[in-house]
């Protein structure tokens, strides 16, 4: 059974972190990040060719994370695989002991390091969630029985600050109907918008884990604004980091404030430390 699901069902405030598989076969750096984050987190997301750039597969990396004694959230994007491969990898993931899956669309290949790649997008994230739910019920997307089904805790992405909100809300409801049981949000800066999102999904009986991005320098903020899709750092945040004597220290303080606020609003927090992994304890208010 997914521990993440058990904790959320028990109304415990959960903490998730994130590690990136290597661009190569040397897992040492990823394992080092796991060592730092694991003592503070209930589960760790393992990204899938993030930024549409080549990395070791999330499937193998998720298993490596599991082997270190912490529950992974296996991320699957619709960009790189067709419906046969996606289902095949879900079966593989379950057989490898991976119990949480986060289904996402995936950045466009033009944004990554293989810009001439063909984006597959045979399915979208909603369809993939619905198919995953079907596999949990023991059948493939064609309705054919599987010799052993899956039991995934199905998650998806949510964008509380991306307007228009009515469109976002309809999208959230659609994902829940497809079988999504928990959401991890894009980085949140406006807690009123997070509250709006959480209030909207509460009646649907699903959980919201709110994202916190640690912005250690004006350079990182510029990168986020220019390169990360669906996210803009508000001006007052940029100004605060830029004006600080020690921007990294200020970023940790800001993230800690955000976590404190999120504890009052959401079901959990997803920390993306962007290189400040060692500050995770302080960000979570544990130190």
């Amino acid at each position: 059974m997914s521990r993440l699901r058990d904790l959320l069902d028990a109304r415990e405030f959960v903490v998730t972190g994130e590690v990136a598989p290597p661009r190569g076969t040397d897992l040492a750096a990823m394992r080092a990040a796991v060592e730092v984050l694991a003592p503070h987190c209930h589960a760790l997301n393992v990204t899938d060719n993030q930024g549409a750039s080549l990395h070791l597969s999330s499937l193998a990396a998720s298993r490596a994370v599991l082997d270190m004694g912490i529950e992974p959230i296996f991320q699957q994007t619709c960009r790189d695989r067709n419906r046969l491969a996606l289902q095949s990898d879900l079966l593989a993931a379950w057989s490898l002991g991976l119990e949480n899956v986060l289904v996402v669309t995936g950045d466009d290949p033009r944004a990554g390091d293989h810009p001439n790649a063909r984006g597959v997008f045979d399915l979208d994230s909603t369809q993939l969630a619905a198919i995953t739910r079907g596999m949990n019920e023991g059948q493939d997307m064609m309705g054919q029985p599987l010799a052993g089904g899956t039991g995934f805790y199905i998650g998806a992405a949510m964008f509380p600050e991306a307007e228009p909100w009515d469109v976002q809300l309809a999208r959230i409801e659609q994902k829940v109907e497809a079988g999504v049981r928990f959401f991890q949000t894009q980085a949140v800066f406006d807690m009123d918008k997070l509250s709006r999102a959480v209030d909207a999904v509460r009646p649907l009986g699903v959980k919201v884990i709110a994202g916190v991005l640690v912005l250690k320098s004006p350079r990182v903020i510029a990168f986020v604004n220019e390169r990360l899709a669906g996210l803009m750092v508000p001006e007052h945040i940029s100004a605060r980091i830029a004006a600080a004597d020690d921007p990294a220290e200020e970023a940790v303080r800001l993230a800690a404030e955000q976590v404190r606020d999120i504890r009052q609003i959401a079901d959990g927090v997803h920390v993306m430390p962007l290189g400040l992994d060692h500050a995770i304890g302080r960000i979570l208010g544990e130190e």
Binding site: V104, T105, D107, D108, D124, S125, T126, Q127, A157, F159, A162, V167, Q168, R171, Q174, Q186, A229, G230, L231, M232
Partner: peptide, 8 residues
Amino acid sequence: NGPCGGMW
């Protein structure tokens, strides 16, 4: 089905 997460 959309929008995707990149919509802003």
